[in-house]
Design a protein around this nucleic acid. Structure first.
Length: 178
DNA sequence: GCCAACGTTGGC
DNA sequence: GCCAACGTTGGC
C-alpha cells in the first residue's frame, strides 16, 4: 500500500484554524499575563507590539494567518480569575521581533539572527474593554463555546484562532463594550 | 506551590 | 529520526 497523502490539515489546532477561516478571516484569542501586560496597559498605550512570543505555532499565526483588522479577544492568564477581558484588533502585519536580538531582554534568543530573524510579531490595537470579564469557567460551561481551544485540557498555545460566532458569543457574555 | 501537559533540546 | 530529559505554561 502506498502511503496516503498527508492531508494539509492535521491536529486540533490546524482543524480549528481551517474551521475559523471558512469565511475568509479569523478572529483570535491572545493570552497575556496581567502582571506583564494587561488590558489596562493596552488601553493606556493604544497599541503595542505583541513581542516575546517564542512558539512556532503562535508565530506562524502572526506571520501567515493574521490580517490587519482581525479582531482579537484579550485573555488574562495566570489571573484570578483567568478569562477574556477585552477586545483588540490586528494593526500591522508581522515584522521581526527585535526583543530577540536584545541581550538585556528577557525574550532574548541567541538563535535569532538579525539577518535571518526567527521570531516575528504583529501590533495589536486597543478596541474596548468588556463590561465584565468572561471567566474561564463560563467559557467552559457555555455550549456554543465547546469547540474553543482555550477550554481544552493542556492547551497552552498563547495565540488561538476563534470563530466569528464564538467571538460574538463571548462579547455578549461580557455585556458588550464598556 | 503543585503538577499535568506540552514543546524543545540534544545524545545516540 | 527516536525519545528521555528538561523547561515552561497556566489552572488550581
Amino acid at each position: 500500500m502506498p502511503k496516503p497523502i498527508v492531508p494539509e490539515v492535521v491536529g486540533p489546532v490546524a482543524k480549528k484554524l481551517a474551521a475559523c477561516k471558512k469565511n475568509g478571516r479569523c478572529s483570535w484569542l491572545m493570552k497575556t499575563e496581567t502582571d506583564v501586560f494587561s488590558i489596562s496597559d493596552l488601553k493606556e498605550k493604544g497599541e503595542t507590539r505583541w513581542d516575546g512570543v517564542r512558539n512556532y505555532q503562535a508565530r506562524n499565526f502572526m506571520m501567515q494567518d493574521m490580517q490587519i483588522g482581525d479582531l482579537v479577544l484579550i485573555y488574562h492568564s495566570n489571573a484570578e480569575p483567568p478569562g477574556v477581558v477585552g477586545i483588540g484588533k490586528v494593526a500591522s502585519k508581522a515584522t521581526p521581533d527585535v526583543t530577540a536580538f536584545d541581550k538585556k531582554s528577557e525574550y532574548y534568543d541567541p538563535k535569532s539572527d538579525p539577518t535571518k530573524p526567527r521570531w516575528f510579531c504583529v501590533s495589536i490595537a486597543f478596541v474596548a474593554e468588556l463590561k465584565s470579564i468572561v471567566p474561564l469557567d463560563v467559557l467552559r460551561s457555555t455550549k456554543a463555546l465547546a469547540d474553543m481551544l482555550v477550554i481544552q485540557r493542556g492547551q497552552r498555545l498563547s495565540i488561538q484562532p476563534v470563530s466569528a460566532k464564538e467571538f460574538q458569543t463571548i462579547c455578549d457574555l461580557g455585556g458588550g463594550e464598556k
